[in-house]
Each structure stands twice: as structure tokens, then as C-alpha cells.
């Protein structure tokens, strides 16, 4: 893959279910591409070094820190961000509802990353234990809440989603 060291290049991704072509500077991270290239600011820029989890998205279905990904290596990848969770502005995702109900968000900076980490957990394990939740968010730092409300919110969301799943199957 040859490229001039100074020219931007175009990366093609599928973002929240739709094709997206984003122009990026050489060496840009997925985080920069989402925020600066596509204007999707829901994914936060915290430490930019993979230690805070604020930039957590789903890459090809797996929870991934966007600050660690060189976007030029991600042609044709599927990326899901916090913006893609709610089906409409009026219909939040159950995890988002749970964070509101359980007061699991204060300043809100960690929230998108926490929710994406939680969504990845619940997709894989619909009935997580408290320890499962703690492990799932072990890469997400929160300075405000002390984590308990976040853990409660995720367990509550899991229960709501299980009940909704059961009623759909009936």
C-alpha cells in the first residue's frame, strides 16, 4: 500500500449500519476519524492511550478502544458508536434508559464508553453476574460515580432486555 507521506487518504467504513467514507491524515486513529472526520463526537477522547476506555466503540462487533486503531488499516470495517444505539431520538436503548434511571451518569464523560462496553457484554452474556459486569467495565474509568450506580444500571438493563427478549419470543 503505497502512499505519499503528506496527503490524506480516504478510508471506507460501515458506521452504525451505513457506508461512510472519511478523509484522514496519515496515521490517524479511528477515534480521530469518527470525531473529526465524521463529526460523531459521542465517542470521547480521554487519555488517547488505551487506559481510560472513554473511546470504546464496537469494531466488527467487538468492544475496542478507537484511540488504539490506525484507521488506514480498517478499510471495510464495521464500526458501531454510541450514536447508533438508540433506534430514534425518542427511543433510547435499554442500557441508556437504565443509566438515566439509576443515576449512573454525572458529568457524562465516561458514559458513552461505559455503555458500549456494557452493550458488548450483554450481546455475549444476557444474564451477567455482578462480577461479569465489573470485569466488562474494568477498562472504563469513571471519576464521578464510584461505579456502583453504573454496575446497577447495567444489571438492570440486562434484566429489562431479558424480559423484553422473552416477551418477543412468546
Amino acid at each position: 500500500m503505497k502512499q505519499s507521506p503528506t496527503k490524506p487518504s480516504v478510508v471506507s467504513l460501515e458506521v452504525n449500519g451505513s457506508p461512510a467514507h472519511v478523509m484522514v491524515a496519515p496515521g490517524a486513529t479511528l477515534l480521530a476519524a469518527l470525531r473529526d472526520g465524521l463529526g460523531l463526537n459521542g465517542t470521547r477522547k480521554g487519555c488517547e492511550s488505551g487506559t481510560c476506555g472513554a473511546c470504546t466503540v464496537h469494531l466488527d462487533g467487538e468492544a475496542t478502544m478507537a484511540c488504539l486503531c490506525l484507521v488506514e488499516t480498517l478499510d471495510d470495517a464495521r464500526v458501531d458508536t454510541i450514536e447508533g444505539l438508540a433506534t430514534s431520538p425518542e427511543a433510547l436503548h435499554p442500557i441508556q434508559e437504565a443509566f438515566l434511571e439509576k443515576f449512573a451518569t454525572q458529568c457524562g464523560f465516561c458514559t458513552a464508553g461505559m455503555i458500549m462496553a456494557a452493550a458488548a457484554l450483554l450481546a455475549r452474556e444476557p444474564n451477567p453476574s455482578r462480577e461479569d459486569v465489573i470485569v466488562a467495565i474494568s477498562g472504563n474509568v469513571c471519576r464521578c460515580t464510584g461505579y456502583e450506580a453504573i454496575i446497577e444500571a447495567i444489571l438492570h438493563a440486562a434484566a429489562v432486555m431479558r424480559r423484553a427478549g422473552v416477551s418477543r419470543a412468546a
Partner: peptide, 12 residues
């Protein structure tokens, strides 16, 4: 593996 980073980090 459980001792290395977080599940999110281990995906990378």
C-alpha cells in the same frame, strides 16, 4: 489472560 488489561483491551 484475565490479569492482562481489560476485555476491551484484550480485543486489540
Amino acid at each position: 489472560l484475565a490479569a492482562i488489561g481489560s476485555p476491551t483491551l484484550r480485543n486489540s
